[in-house]
């Protein structure tokens, strides 16, 4: 059985009047890539800062590696790597010096440290920039340096707080690939993001957050299975009267119909032959359409059904 690395139980955190974490719960097992998914301001970073004991919290309990986490838990901190949301490096140290400085806070042996630094530089692809100061690096390269400083000591548990924000596509893919590799090498990863595709592509398990609460948790498939909609069919009709839309509600398994511009999005609950049922309806009523395609539900649909809002809002 895999070891429980992180256990967060009923944590409440208030900023004056604002409730940032509302009885937040989270469990992470060894070897997982856990995605904390939610819109900006939902409490993802606050959760991480509480877990790391950087922030006080009002109520609840946090354990890392089976022990209570406190600001003085230096032994626990030795096993953790943090990649903060903002690039957090020394502006007047070069790329290599920055990585070496942070590695030195964990690793005493000089030779091991040199090896780790070389590996981290290789890992994030900054070999050609080792003598550069951060201010001379592009946004994407800075993010890579930010990651290198957090993972250089080969931690067991890595917190990555929105590492791909404001990053170009090339660096983004590089980063995501790197995270997967870190996980394959044995690190457990907690990854916060508001990008659905990233969470879906990368994470073995996802917790959806909103307003400081953990709404649901599970694998992508488990989350999608939780909602009523199991299939969406998008049709663009040449012309369609409102009465016809009302009639469409009678098609078996239709749960909702939404008009978005020229597109009509018809949502179906679990059921077979949804597409053929719809096509039969179109043929029967001699309707003409420009396009028609079927979609499986996304995490955005999960979020929409849980909160009534889109994650992208």
């Amino acid at each position: 059985m895999k070891e429980m690395i992180v256990k967060v139980k009923n944590v409440v955190k208030r900023y004056s009047e604002k409730l940032a974490l509302d009885h937040f719960n989270m469990e992470v097992k060894e070897g997982e890539i856990l995605g904390l998914l939610g819109p900006n301001g939902c409490g993802k970073t606050t959760a991480i800062n509480c877990i790391l004991s950087l922030l006080n919290f009002d109520k609840g309990e946090i354990q890392l590696f089976g022990q209570k986490m406190t600001p003085n838990s230096y032994d626990i901190k030795r096993q953790i790597g943090l990649v903060p949301q903002e690039v957090s490096v020394f502006e007047n140290l070069t790329v290599r010096e920055n990585i070496d400085y942070f590695c030195g806070l964990y690793v005493d042996d000089k030779n091991t440290r040199r090896r780790y630094v070389d590996e981290a530089i290789e890992f994030v692809g900054l070999k050609d920039y080792v003598k550069y100061y951060p201010k001379k690096l592009s946004g994407g390269l800075k993010r890579r340096l930010n990651i290198a400083c957090g993972i250089v000591h080969k931690p067991k548990l890595i917190f990555l707080d929105e590492p791909t924000v404001a990053v170009d596509a090339q660096s983004r893919n590089f980063i995501l690939e790197g995270i997967r590799k870190l996980n394959q090498e044995g690190s457990t990863i907690i990854y916060t993001t508001h990008y659905l595709e990233e969470a879906e592509m990368l994470c073995s398990r996802i917790i959806i957050m909103d307003n400081g609460k953990d709404l649901v948790s599970g694998t992508t498939e488990e989350l999608k299975a939780m909602i009523t909609t199991s299939e969406k069919i998008v049709v663009s009709f040449l012309s369609l009267e409102d009465e016809m839309i009302d009639s469409m509600h009678k098609i078996p398994h239709v749960v909702d119909i939404e008009k978005k511009g020229e597109d009509l999005i018809i949502k179906f609950e679990n059921g077979n032959n949804n597409l053929s049922n719809l096509i039969s309806f179109i043929t029967e009523h001699k309707l003409t359409y420009r396009k028609l395609y079927s979609q499986l539900p996304t995490l955005n649909d999960v979020f929409l059904e849980l909160t009534g809002r889109e994650l992208r809002d």
Binding site: L52, L54, D75, K77, P84, S88, F102, L105, Y106, C149
Partner: peptide, 17 residues
């Protein structure tokens, strides 16, 4: 001071006293 700079957040998460 973790409430004063980004780099302090990182430093405070390390085992450095």
């Amino acid at each position: 001071q973790a409430n004063l700079s980004n780099i302090a957040i990182r430093i405070n998460s390390t085992p450095l006293k």
